[in-house]
């Protein structure tokens, strides 16, 4: 069991002389990074958006603050995208 674990670690960490293409390419890693950030933005916006719609239903004047607050977490994915572009 331990031996298998060690072998697995070898594969995952790409230790030793592995000839095949790596487990995760740069592009793959970048995609995961942006994807996770997008997921986080979405998760944050979900709550804000629901609250904003509630506020707008109470008072139409809340529309603009609502939109602004809803897109605030968009920053997460935008900067993730930017960092990935700069890093690649």
């Amino acid at each position: 069991m331990i031996e298998i674990g060690a072998a697995l670690t070898e594969v995952v960490l790409q230790n030793g002389a592995v000839e095949e293409s790596p487990f995760l390419t740069d592009y793959g890693a970048a995609a995961i990074a942006v994807g996770l950030a997008a997921l986080a933005s979405g998760y944050a916006e979900r709550g804000i958006g629901a609250a904003a719609v509630g506020a707008v239903a109470e008072d139409r004047d809340m529309l603009i603050p609502g939109i602004i607050l809803t897109v605030l977490p968009e920053t997460l994915v935008i900067f993730a995208l930017l960092i990935v572009i700069l890093a690649l």
Partner: peptide, 12 residues
């Protein structure tokens, strides 16, 4: 730095 979103949207 927040203005960097302009580049991100341009690219996206």
């Amino acid at each position: 730095l927040s203005y960097l979103r302009i580049v991100a949207v341009l690219l996206a």
